[in-house]
Simulated assay, not measured.
Amino acid sequence: MTAAGGAHVRPAGPEDHEAIWTILRPVYRAGETYCMPRDIERDEALADWFAPPFTAFVAEIDGRVLGTSHVGANRQGGGSHVANASFATHPDARGRGVARALAEHAKSWAAVQGFRAMQFNFVVSTNTDAVHLWQKVGFSIVGRLPGAFLHPRHGPVDALVMFQTLEGRPE
């Protein structure tokens, strides 16, 4: 899938591990947007990113990986019809449509897989660029968890639950 900005999203494989780690490492080390250990090591981070029930993807522009996502079932059993996803982009991706391409791809892929909705369980409220983008692509804030995230600079900040019904899903 190629987005209007020229970002091409495709399934990720072992050949993408180094590029994905280059993107995830500074995000995880900063500790401002993900509930991951700030000192997580490469192999553990990649194992988590590629772990079932998630499928990993990368977004490239001109053959360079500038973003990554993973998409899969939010929960098992009675919650398995709702997808979840995580996203990260390289600083060089800013303003190039990479995050939007990953978000749109995640929604389309999830709908084709039979998911009826997508939920983001824990969007850090201070991650305003992400919150704005998710709202632009159709997600609504349906819940707020007061002080649920311990931000390394701001202390306890809210985490948001965001949700969107997926259209065009197979019946």
Rank of each mutant, 00 (worst) to 15 (best):
M1S: 12
T2M: 00
T2N: 01
A3R: 00
A4I: 05
G6H: 11
R10L: 01
P14E: 11
H17V: 04
H17E: 15
A19R: 12
I20M: 02
I20E: 04
W21Q: 02
T22D: 07
R25H: 09
R25G: 10
P26E: 03
P26H: 13
G31Q: 07
T33R: 02
C35E: 08
M36T: 15
P37Q: 12
E44G: 10
A45D: 09
P52N: 15
T55Y: 01
I61Y: 07
I61L: 13
D62T: 11
V65E: 00
G67D: 03
T68F: 04
S69W: 00
S69D: 03
H70V: 12
H70T: 04
V71R: 03
A73H: 11
N74F: 07
R75Y: 15
R75W: 15
Q76P: 13
G78L: 15
S80P: 11
H81D: 09
H81L: 09
A83V: 07
N84Q: 13
D92K: 10
A93W: 02
R94C: 06
R100P: 01
L102W: 01
K107D: 05
S108T: 03
Q113F: 02
G114D: 02
G114F: 01
R116N: 09
A117Q: 12
F120D: 03
F120P: 02
F122Q: 07
V123D: 09
V123L: 05
V124D: 13
N127D: 05
T128G: 09
W134V: 07
S140M: 15
V142A: 10
L145V: 15
L145Q: 15
H151N: 08
P152E: 03
R153I: 10
H154Q: 14
M162I: 09
M162A: 06
F163E: 12
E167C: 01
G168V: 12
R169P: 02
P170L: 07
